[in-house]
């Protein structure tokens, strides 16, 4: 067992974990933050994307012990319970950027990271390139791309 201390969605967390625990398992099973999903479990689909020290990573390919001493943000950390949605979440709702919703937490965490890196004025081409690591099997991506472009602009206003 290994002792880990990290910040999850702004809250300090201390835990004893088996060193082979994946970050996504730790988030879902220990902390019950089930918004982060396990899709392919092979670092391809992006349903498990969270932010580690502010950068998008695949939590199914990160060991919880590797996050010791670091800061993690999950989809639950974007907007407080009962508070208005984060502008990127609101954009996905507004523009119908989801159907079944399974890939959505990963899509949104990737999208927020993308805006942090590349700004608020994103072309469809850039958005599509940047979504290389996030798979959606329902929407055909059209509305996801629209949502991200709109969410990026909305984030500029709310910042």
């Amino acid at each position: 067992m290994a002792k880990i201390s990290l910040i999850v969605n702004g809250n300090p967390v201390n835990a004893n974990v088996d060193s082979r625990t994946l970050l996504v398992q730790f988030l879902r099973e220990n902390l019950r933050l089930t918004g982060t999903h396990v899709g392919c479990d092979t670092s391809q689909c992006g349903a498990c994307v969270v932010h580690l020290d502010g950068k998008a990573v695949k939590s199914c390919t990160t060991l919880a012990v590797m996050a010791d001493g670091h800061e993690v943000r999950t989809i639950e950390g974007l907007a407080a319970d009962g508070a208005p949605l984060h502008p990127m979440q609101e954009a996905f709702r507004e523009h119908h950027g989801l159907q079944c919703g399974f890939c959505t937490p990963g899509m949104i965490m990737t999208a927020v990271d993308l805006v942090n890196r590349k700004g608020h004025d994103l072309s469809d081409h850039v958005i599509r390139e940047e979504l290389e690591g996030n798979l959606c099997r329902c929407t055909g991506y059209q509305n996801i791309v629209t949502s991200i472009a709109a969410g990026a602009k909305a984030m500029a206003k709310s910042a």
Binding site: S43, A56, V57, T110, D113, E132, G133
Partner: peptide, 9 residues
């Protein structure tokens, strides 16, 4: 290489 999340690690 890979995708943005992979490149972060």
């Amino acid at each position: 290489i890979g995708d943005p999340a992979v490149r972060h690690k």
